[in-house]
Amino acid sequence: MRKISSDKIRNAVAELAVRANVSLRKDILEALKKAQRSETKPLAKKTLALLIENAKIAESEFIPICQDTGMAVVSCEIGQDVHVKGDLTKAINEGIKQGYKKGHLRKSVVSDPLIRKNTKTNTPCVIHFKIVSGGALKLTVLPKGFGSENKSRLIMLKPTDTDKEIIGFVISVVKAAGADACPPFILGIGIGGTLDKAAHLAKEATLRPIHKPNPKSHLGRIEKQILSAANKTGIGPAGLGGKTTCLGVNILSFPTHIAGLPVCVNISCHAMRSASAVI
């Protein structure tokens, strides 16, 4: 049994919250650079150059990439041989609180969805626990901005539906999001499971580096088709036109019921942020 103190977890979460918000993920930055080189429309080229410049300023001046530093989604993978000394949930929330304070990150969380009073700490965060084998603990902080979260959608398709209906739905979501959700997007797509499982998979899918191929080849093919169709919509960077509407498409799937085919699209703006650490 390996012992890990909750203080250590709190400090790691605080550091990850700041890092995720000021330092754009390398796979996203590379994709922006590649898109900037391949765009031909001057305004699209200029917009992408500005986003690359924005990421540079954020990193060098240590300020957030975007003022919407998100609601924090924390994934905590705990090895079953780990014993946490202290209150784990409290430690994670305390880490978010400290990171958002220290990093001058925006506090965007309200205590009740209807009463809407700001908690001023950006907590509580959304935590997903996963028990895995071994003696390690992996933490991932994903600050989720709501410009794109608001445009995310879920549909329960029929079991007799195919790739065609899935792609059709995803593209309709992309078109409806348009300029509002800060394209170019990263699409996290969850297919299968139950309603809640599909939504969780969609969020988790955004964590996979976008240049890495899907280990399931049939899903990899759908990803490519979606990427190509999304980039033909003409929405472009900031919705100002161009061929870069989407930087990456990641699908995760899970077994499902004979009667259904849940599909969830979690849209991320171009400021797709996440940071991980293993303790």
Binding site: A58, P64, Q67, H104, R106, S108, G147
Partner: peptide, 18 residues
């Protein structure tokens, strides 16, 4: 809705919302 201002800065990160 700008991000908090650090001491010495004019403002924190401040882009447009939807």
């Amino acid at each position: 809705g700008p991000a908090p201002t650090r001491p010495g800065d004019a403002i924190g990160s401040c882009g447009p919302t939807t």
